[in-house]
């Protein structure tokens, strides 16, 4: 009998218990209420966006209004946002910046399904700035060369920074199961501007 088997048996014993099982309907009711709350929150956010856009005279309010997603594919909208020292020309609808520093930015879906810890990168978009070698196959996109590599869990896209930006590689790691198609990944990476305060990460 191995240590692993002994431990597994001990854990099995510890996990066993005489517990009352709540009705599945209770879980479902809680989940539906959470969905309603999220929908209300998104509509409020969208309304706020509309008011703000109207106040500053933007003409693209239809694009900026945030609505609950009805499709699985990530949608990019023409709205600039800043996660200093990085700026993005496009905003993925239903995603928000979770953490930012001179080395990296993490962006997560708004559904609360992803860890809130800044050092946990599972399921997150991770934008980094570094001097690491470029690898994978490359494609031309809007006059820039972008290198693409994939694994079971992630697609990584990288490109050199623009003239006038700090010299280095800007890179985005996209989780595989979050419905980013390649065109959206390329567009989003190409929309990143690296500010002078950005610093190279290592690793």
């Amino acid at each position: 009998m191995s240590d692993h088997d002994d431990l597994k048996r001990a854990l099995g014993l510890a996990a066993t218990g005489d517990r009352a099982m709540p009705a599945a309907g209770e879980d479902l009711a809680r989940a539906r209420e959470a969905l309603r709350a999220r929908t209300r929150r998104r509509y409020r956010t969208g309304l706020g966006g509309l008011v703000l856009a109207a106040a500053v005279g933007f003409g693209t309010v239809g694009v900026l209004a945030d609505r609950p997603d009805t499709s699985d594919r990530v949608q990019l909208v023409a709205e600039r946002f800043v996660a200093a020292p990085y700026t993005f020309d496009l905003t993925p609808k239903g995603w928000s910046v979770q953490a930012q520093n001179p080395y990296a930015v993490t962006i997560v879906p708004d559904d609360g399904s992803i860890s809130t810890h800044p050092d946990d990168f599972v399921g997150k978009l991770v934008i980094t700035f570094d001097e690491n070698p470029l690898s994978g196959h490359s494609v031309e996109h809007d006059g820039r060369r972008i290198w693409i590599s994939t694994s079971d869990d992630y697609t990584s896209m990288a490109t050199r920074t623009r003239t006038g930006e700090p010299s280095g590689i800007v890179r985005i790691q996209y989780p595989q199961d979050t419905h980013w198609n390649e065109a959206a990944m390329l567009d989003f990476l190409a929309s990143v501007h690296v500010g002078p305060a950005a610093r190279h990460g290592h690793g």
């Binding site: 879980d27 479902l28 809680r30 989940a31 539906r32 959470a34 969905l35 999220r38 699985d72 879906p109 559904d111 609360g112 399904s113 199961d177 979050t178 419905h179």
Partner: peptide, 11 residues
């Protein structure tokens, strides 16, 4: 967890 799963059920 069940609530989070419900909110991202498509995934």
């Amino acid at each position: 967890t069940l609530t989070r799963l419900y909110l991202s059920w498509a995934r």
